[in-house]
């Protein structure tokens, strides 16, 4: 059980590190939001599932799953609201330089 949870948490950490690199590296708001959504969806999922395995069955696991469901419902809403605000106030998306 412990090994399983370690595997899950390490995978989640990998995605989080990739997302942090992306947040620093990428050129504009729109593409950075992709990196943030990467963390939110997969990194958080893997880490919370790993911790849930560590806890075993019980009330705490149930609550962890509630937090996970909340994250999954709320995070797309936040990302969409931010990006729509950026789009409507006229931020131009970064374009690849056409050769």
């Amino acid at each position: 059980m412990d090994i399983l949870s370690i595997i899950f948490i390490v995978a989640g950490l990998f995605f989080m590190i990739v997302a942090a690199i992306g947040v620093v590296r990428l050129p504009d708001v729109f593409s950075r939001s992709h990196a943030v959504s990467l963390t939110d969806s997969l990194g958080a999922f893997l880490m919370l599932v790993g911790i849930a395995f560590h806890e075993g069955l019980g009330k705490n696991t149930l609550k962890i799953l509630v937090v996970l469901a909340l994250l999954y419902i709320l995070n797309p809403v936040i990302a969409h609201a931010t990006i729509r605000a950026a789009f409507r106030s006229g931020v131009k998306p970064w374009q690849k330089k056409s050769s």
């Binding site: 992709h34 797309p76 969409h80």
Partner: peptide, 11 residues
């Protein structure tokens, strides 16, 4: 679409 990394709904 927003939840899937790489694509995000703008409007």
């Amino acid at each position: 679409i927003t939840l899937t990394p790489g694509t995000i709904t703008v409007e």
